[in-house]
Nucleic acid binder design. Structure first.
Lengths: 115, 115
DNA sequence: CAAGAAATTACATAATTCTTCAATTGACTA
DNA sequence: TAGTCAATTGAAGAATTATGTAATTTCTTG
């Protein structure tokens, strides 16, 4: 029944789903708990329709759920612990940026020593 | 000097960089240690030039390094621990897939009970 | 019911990213 | 040096994704 998708492809799709600044911010905001669209909109400066588009991407991927409460819609993480992932990403990023800073320094030294 | 990029945008770029099956496979292969392009090419079924394109993406992002050794080029992780990240991703993915399986089951039940 | 707010959808356009083929570079060897 | 293998680069077209405007849907309230 289940269409067999190679794990590396599922992973790639998952990471691609994360690959947008607005989607990242939404996931970070949702870590504080279920949040109505109105609040997301207030926290992220963006057109309502653009936010909806990005929320739709998150919804389709299954990482968040949306429930209607009267005239507002509340989003929440779909019982998933995103914190760990974001931590890992931050660690790697800072490591990489440090590496690049080191490289920059090397380049600067090279420049000053050559000219 | 350093152009200030919001963290959430850096994260988004980082995840986008991961969002391709070939790039995921390369990173997974490199976890076993530095690997010549030839071996990557043997492990991943793909045109050499396509692999090069994806390797270039990884290089530009700074997550891998390439060093030439004679006529072969060897790639390696740029001193970064990717394992942790992949683990986190796998955990979340399995959680999400389990959730979707649960949903599928619900749908099936609903279907059989309605018709 | 009419008007208005909250959120989503439709759709067109712009921008990115993928893929493939041809050309190129660097290194080795007959 | 000519030829060849390994790998990369360039560039064009296809495909996917993002963005903004307008139209819709769903609910609430006078």
């Amino acid at each position: 029944m289940a269409v067999q998708v190679p794990l590396y492809q599922a992973k790639a799709e998952f990471f691609r789903m994360l690959g947008h600044p607005v989607r990242i911010r939404v996931l970070e905001l949702l870590q504080a708990g279920p949040t109505p669209v109105r609040d997301l909109l207030a926290a992220i400066e963006i057109e309502p329709s653009s936010l909806s588009q990005q929320l739709a991407v998150l919804r389709r991927s299954g990482i968040v759920t949306a429930t209607r409460d009267g005239s507002t819609v509340v989003y929440a993480l779909a019982g998933v612990d995103v914190a760990e992932l974001m931590q890992a990403a931050r660690r790697i990023l800072t490591g990489m940026l440090a590496g690049q800073a080191g490289l920059l320094e090397e380049l600067r030294e090279a420049e000053t020593s050559v000219r």
